[in-house]
C-alpha cells in the first residue's frame, strides 16, 4: 500500500480533564472516502477537530503527506489542504452568502473549485448570494458550508454531521451531490449518525465507541449485526 494521505497514530484527545479519544489509529489513502460512524459522544466530532487542529495534539499523532502536523495551528493545517465542514454549519453571520464562499477561498490554493463552480453545483446560492447567510434555510446554509470548504480546493475534506437537523428530502439532495464533489481525486472523511447513508457513499468505514475504534472494514461487505455490536457495545 502506498503512503496514506493522512494517518493518525495513537491519537489521544482531551477536553480539559475529560479524555475523548484513546489511541485512535486511522489511515486515509489518496482519493479515498471514509465513513466515521458511532453513537452520540463516541468522539466523532473530536476526531474531526483533532485532524483540523482545532484541538491541539502531539505533532506525531497526525501525519499528512509525510509531515507531522498534529501540533500545527488550525490555519496552518488549513493551508496544507485540509478543509472541515463543521457540525452545525457555523457560517459567519455578518458575512453575505458570497462573502462566506470567498473567505473560504482566501487561502489561495489552486484547483477546480471557484465561485462559478460552486454556483453551478448549487444554483440557489447564486440567487441568494447577497443575502445574509443566516437568512437562508438550513439546507441552503449547509450548501454554503460545503461550498465554503470546497473553495479552499482541499485534498482532504471532512464532513461533520452534514445531515443533522435537515429535512430528509434535503439530505437526499446533498448526498446526491456528494459523489460529484468528491469525484475529483479529493479524499473525504464523512462523519454521520445515519449509518446507511454513510456506508453508501464510502469505501471503508471506522466505527468509534467511547473514544476507541471498535470496528473498521469495507463499507460494502460489513454485516449489520457486526456494526450494531461495535456501535452500541452490546455483546
Amino acid at each position: 500500500m502506498p503512503d496514506p494521505l493522512l494517518s493518525l497514530c495513537g491519537l489521544d484527545a482531551f477536553y480539559g480533564d475529560f479524555q475523548a479519544l484513546y489511541g485512535v489509529d486511522l489511515q486515509v489513502a489518496q482519493g479515498e472516502v471514509l465513513a466515521i460512524i458511532g453513537a452520540n459522544g463516541a468522539g466523532k466530532t473530536t476526531l474531526m477537530r483533532s485532524i483540523s487542529s482545532l484541538t491541539r495534539n502531539r505533532a506525531e499523532m497526525v501525519r499528512y503527506r509525510g509531515e507531522d502536523i498534529g501540533a500545527l495551528r488550525a490555519d496552518e493545517v488549513a493551508a496544507r489542504g485540509i478543509a472541515l465542514v463543521p457540525e452545525g454549519r457555523q457560517l459567519f453571520p455578518s458575512l453575505s452568502v458570497e462573502e462566506n464562499l470567498i473567505i473560504g477561498g482566501q487561502i489561495g490554493r489552486k484547483g477546480p473549485w471557484s465561485l462559478p463552480a460552486i454556483y453551478t453545483l448549487f444554483p440557489i446560492l447564486q440567487e441568494r448570494r447577497h443575502q445574509q447567510s443566516t437568512s437562508l434555510s438550513g439546507g441552503q446554509q449547509q450548501m454554503v458550508a460545503i461550498g465554503r470548504a470546497l473553495m479552499a480546493n482541499p485534498d482532504l475534506i471532512l464532513f461533520d454531521e452534514i445531515s443533522l437537523g435537515l429535512a430528509p428530502i434535503i439530505i437526499k439532495d446533498i448526498y446526491a451531490a456528494l459523489p460529484g464533489i468528491i469525484g475529483e481525486g479529493m479524499s473525504a472523511l464523512i462523519v454521520e449518525q445515519d449509518i446507511t447513508k454513510a456506508l453508501a457513499v464510502s469505501s471503508r468505514f471506522y466505527c468509534l465507541q467511547e473514544g476507541r475504534v471498535s470496528l473498521e472494514g469495507a463499507s460494502a461487505t460489513v454485516a449489520r449485526e457486526e456494526i450494531s455490536r461495535a456501535y452500541f457495545g452490546v455483546a
Binding site: 482545532l54 488550525a74 488549513a78 453571520p93 489561495g108
Partner: peptide
C-alpha cells in the same frame, strides 16, 4: 476588503475563521 472580511469572520467565530486559513 478582504481584510475587513477577515475581521468580521474572526469576530463572528474566531475558531471557524482559523479553518479559512486566518491566523487569529
Amino acid at each position: 476588503t478582504a481584510l475587513g472580511r477577515a475581521f468580521r469572520a474572526t469576530s463572528d467565530n474566531p475558531e471557524i475563521a482559523q479553518l479559512m486559513g486566518l491566523n487569529r
